[in-house]
Design a protein around this nucleic acid. Structure first.
Lengths: 167, 167
DNA sequence: CCAAATGTTCAGAATTCTCTGAAGGCATGC
DNA sequence: GCATGCCTTCAGAGAATTCTGAACATTTGG
């Protein structure tokens, strides 16, 4: 591992763990710059950051940052925070960002169950395809029922104070 | 919805639900042809299929199919089934493919927890970044502990007979 | 009311990834 | 022992996506 600088947070980029995170999220299907932007939010030493700061830190154009912020806001991973004394818009990671990310996979699970159901009505009900589709449907139905409850239990273990709001 | 053919399984492709599934998996980060191949396995009316059949059905080159089969086998979604009377290799979806797919997300969860831990040792432990990282670490630690148990409970509800083997 | 700075949009360039097609390896059957 | 057929590998073409840079809209402070 060649580390060009001893500083954990190099001036022109993300800390190493941040790049790792971005890489992992990218391989999971997230766009590269969006993943890096999210990592920048996570590792920032401030409560909130501006688009300009992000662009400078990540070495990306204003356009990229704008698109990334729009996307992250749409899926509920970051939020705008009031900043009366500044002209620029300030954003921060939502405290429940990771739970939100997990919940979004829940939509995928529902879709899988629907696809299995749809497929079942198009194949002979006593063939091998039907058997596979029933197994698939049952599994995702189970997950669809259990996962939200699991996340709910997580919320229950968290202190319900200040900034822990649910989507 | 324009359905070019009444037949649920057009001669030159996947049933509609199959293409939906492939699209969903693709948007979730899976390669296009791998997703289509998996869908072909799911919707096949046979117990097992060969690479040649898949290539003909999907209109893809032998090279693509070979790569897709290698990948799907590596991650444990399909398996080779003995076919003594045939020269070609026969494959089928593993019965626990969907649970395996979910479990693979478990590895991702473990990685996220590790990244949070690694990040924690590089930021001031009383700053905002540390607070965010601790929250992230705790969430993924929770998920890492609970998700395998959830899937285990799924296996327990399944009839343990014939072809239900765990990875 | 004007001016300056910030955020947004969009067309185009460049990178990246995916698929194909042909050549090579390997096992099987004659 | 040889020939046949299937699967695999790999370089290159093609396509899709992503990032940039400049022009535009918007908002705030003087």
């Amino acid at each position: 591992m060649a580390t060009p600088s001893d500083s954990p947070q190099a001036a022109t980029g993300l800390p190493e763990a941040g790049e790792h995170l971005a890489l992992a999220l990218t391989q999971a299907g997230m766009q590269r710059m969006i993943a890096r932007t999210l990592a920048a939010f996570l590792f920032s030493d401030r409560e909130s950051v501006t688009a300009g700061e992000l662009g400078r830190q990540l070495g990306a154009s204003a356009g990229s940052i704008s698109g990334a912020i729009t996307m992250l806001r749409t899926v509920g991973l970051i939020e705008q925070v009031p900043a009366p004394s500044s002209r620029r818009d300030h954003y921060r990671m939502r405290p429940d960002a990771w739970a939100t990310l997990m919940t979004s996979k829940n939509a995928m699970i529902g879709l899988m169950r629907e696809i299995a159901d749809a497929g079942l009505s198009t194949v002979p009900s006593d063939g091998p395809a039907a058997a596979r589709l029933r197994r698939m449907r049952d599994f995702y139905a189970y997950m669809l029922a259990e996962l939200p409850a699991l996340i709910e239990r997580w919320y229950a273990t968290q202190p319900p104070d200040d900034q822990a709001q649910r989507p």
